[in-house]
Design a protein around this nucleic acid. Structure first.
Lengths: 146, 146
DNA sequence: CTGAAAGTTTAGCATTGGCTAAACCTATTG
DNA sequence: CAATAGGTTTAGCCAATGCTAAACTTTCAG
């Protein structure tokens, strides 16, 4: 590899990073929704819009509107006044989110952070960690456990 | 249903977490801007809108519009066709962002992640780590170095 | 089986953050 | 010192995400 005495690509990498963050943001909400819906289905057998609203801390109407977009995106299905279902793709996204979430949260706990903080921070961080970083976190956990 | 022996506050904490993430998002852009402006001033002596646009990977017009908001928020000052300055508050925010950024990036590197990934991921993560997590990261770094 | 309470959706609005194209300054050069 | 090239701003558009209030369904008690 290159013998970089000093990070020549730093400036270019930045706009790449920022672009990725903006892209992440659009999918972030979708991921939060499907992950939450999956949890609700597992926990209570069904996911209702108002449960989602409550847990996300957002108005009911907002959820309705967002679900419409998610339906267009092929992640969920829903009929008016009924509960919400995930499509195959929706489940896939939910599972992936849960996987990341678990790793990040466990990692933060292993780092010595409190449960409360681990829960809160992992929610924010999970959408911004690359697979490489996840692997590093998993490695750290494995080492710790041994 | 099952008697949840653990984490009674988990559900409530979630909406707290999501609320915080939404709040983070509004300040995130502002932090990125002021941090970048600070870097530009340090690097080249002045920050021009077009430099900001280039590094963030957005259109010039977008920067103009955002700077107007930042000016209203008391973070920057600018006159038309001139370069951008940070207010005292702007500098404070920039310094804080840099501090977080440095810790997160160094931490990721110490975890064994590549430079490229550390740069990209830290940009996304820095806005979502609490002070507690930052402290844990700093602790980890200190231990590593010894 | 009916009517009101509870739960959902629609309507309409605001803000943020993006874009392109056109208008507008500034500054350089001939 | 004027013309123009190039950088900046304005205008006007769009999509996403949030809200409240009003309209509409469902459900359940009586």
């Amino acid at each position: 590899m290159p013998q970089r005495t000093k990070k020549p690509g730093a400036a270019k990498t930045r706009s790449v990073a920022f672009r990725r963050i903006r892209a992440d943001h659009s999918s972030e909400l979708a991921e939060d929704y499907v992950e939450l819906i999956a949890d609700l289905i597992d926990e209570k057998g069904e996911a209702r819009g108002s449960d989602v609203a409550m847990r996300l801390g957002v108005a009911n109407a907002t959820v309705v509107k967002t679900l419409k977009r998610l339906q267009d995106a092929g992640l969920v299905t829903q009929e008016p006044y009924r509960s919400i279902f995930l499509t195959g793709e929706g489940w896939k996204m939910a599972e992936d989110g849960r996987r990341k979430h678990k790793i990040v949260e466990a990692f933060l706990l292993a780092l010595g952070v409190s449960e409360e903080t681990a829960r809160i921070d992992s929610e924010g961080i999970e959408h911004h960690v690359s697979e490489e970083t996840l692997r590093a976190m998993a490695r750290f956990l494995a080492r710790k456990v041994m």
